Simulated scan of single mutants.
Amino acid sequence: MKALVAIKHSFITAIWHMLTDNVPHREPGGTYVTQRDPERATRRAITALNQLGYPVTLNPTEEGRV
């Protein structure tokens, strides 16, 4: 029930923004979460690999730094 209420709230919020700003819905895309907070995405990936038994050591390149 809580999840249903949360989804309804998200829909209502999105509809309210579309109507008040007079803009169509814009899908953020599949990489939205990663682009929004890349450090969090990195931590989650490391945690997932550690839980699978893979020790992780990061050696970022200059292009890969956030």
Rank of each mutant, 00 (worst) to 15 (best):
V33S: 07
R65S: 14
M18Y: 02
L19G: 00
K2Y: 10
H17K: 15
P60M: 08
N22P: 00
V33K: 08
V66M: 10
R26V: 05
T34S: 09
E39G: 08
E62P: 03
P24E: 05
K8F: 12
A48L: 13
R44H: 11
L58N: 05
L4K: 11
V56K: 06
G29W: 01
W16A: 10
G64S: 07
V5G: 02
F11G: 05
Q51A: 09
T57P: 00
G64I: 00
V23K: 11
A45L: 15
Y32M: 08
S10H: 07
N22K: 10
V5A: 09
A41I: 02
R43Y: 11
F11D: 09
L58Q: 08
V23T: 13
I46C: 04
Y54W: 04
P55D: 08
I7D: 12
I15H: 07
E27G: 04
D21V: 12
H17I: 11
G53S: 00
P55C: 02
K2V: 08
I46L: 09
P38Q: 04
P28H: 00
R26S: 03
V5N: 07
N59F: 11
P24Q: 04
F11T: 10
V23G: 02
E39F: 10
V56E: 08
H9P: 05
R43W: 12
T20K: 01
Q51S: 06
R40P: 00
A6E: 14
M18E: 03
T42F: 07
T20H: 02
Y54F: 07
